[in-house]
Amino acid sequence: MMRGETARYLASRLVTSLLIVLGAMLLLFALSALVPGDPAATLLGPQASPEFARQFIREMGLDRPLHERLWIFLANVLTGNLGVDVLSGRPVAGMVLSVIPYTFILTFAAIGLAVLLGVPLGVFAATHRGSIADHVLAFISVAFIAVPSFVVAILLLLVFSIWLDWLPVLGGGEPGDWADQAKRLILPTVALSLGWIGFIARLVRSSMLEVMAEPHIRTLRAYGISERLVTYKYALKNACIPTIALLGLGIGRLLGGAVLVEIVFARPGLGRLIYDALSVRNFPVVQGAVLVVVVLFVVVNLLVDLSYSAIDPRMRQAQRYARDGGAG
């Protein structure tokens, strides 16, 4: 019975994910059809010669009826063809692939740092409930959550790169120079993860407190299991489930934050790619990159869902947590 429910839950998540991707594709297509004015003029600029504009329209298939264009677009995307960059003539898929690792590294480093700091802080606050440290941590958490990540990015840049000159300012680092790349990863990672440290610390604190009051924890205490084992082995695992749900739900915001942080630090990445394409109104690149972000987001969400079943043998519980977490 349980397995059937789990399978049904995963199936419904899969359908939702596919709907999100399909919705995004339709939306992006609709937007491309909506580009106001003559698309060739918008994309190529007013200086383009009429012959070139006509050729361009034919190449892009812009002279065909809308429903045909939609099919071509969908078929292309499904075969991994995200179109061609109008300006450089390079395939968009290749451009996106070449910058994805930077965005990946940044987001994963940020999640890693947030978990690494947020979880212990949350556990500490929960085990020292009501102490001065607990109150201070609560205030710091709110501050971390409230302050926008790009503001943090700018201030970090100012203090550590410009005033103190400890860390390099901009860019992703020399290709192949790992030490340089790592150094340039530090500030963006801190900027991006700060809010998440606050989120996770608060969530872990409250779920720890909730779990510690549950009967199964009392059972362990009644058998004299050491408080250390009770806290870190048993309760922490229970408290982690809502945290994973939060990460799953927040991955979209994290990607959004990464875009801003990449731009502040002039780091290569998906955000930078979209931003640069935007400033020259290069819509095919924006379209392709946004689509990739959406797919990434959907895949990560599915992975998060799967990871519940790894931690929690009862999927239903995980579902409940995920839903409740959605309100916060």
């Binding site: 992006l28 937007l31 106001p36 739900l249 915001r253 959004g256 875009v259 935007l278 959406v294 987001f297």
Partner: peptide, 17 residues
């Protein structure tokens, strides 16, 4: 779908158009 969407990224697509 709306609330789990990377909305800032979506905003970029809108602004592009």
């Amino acid at each position: 779908v709306i609330s789990s969407f990377p909305s800032l990224v979506l905003a970029l697509a809108f602004v592009a158009v």
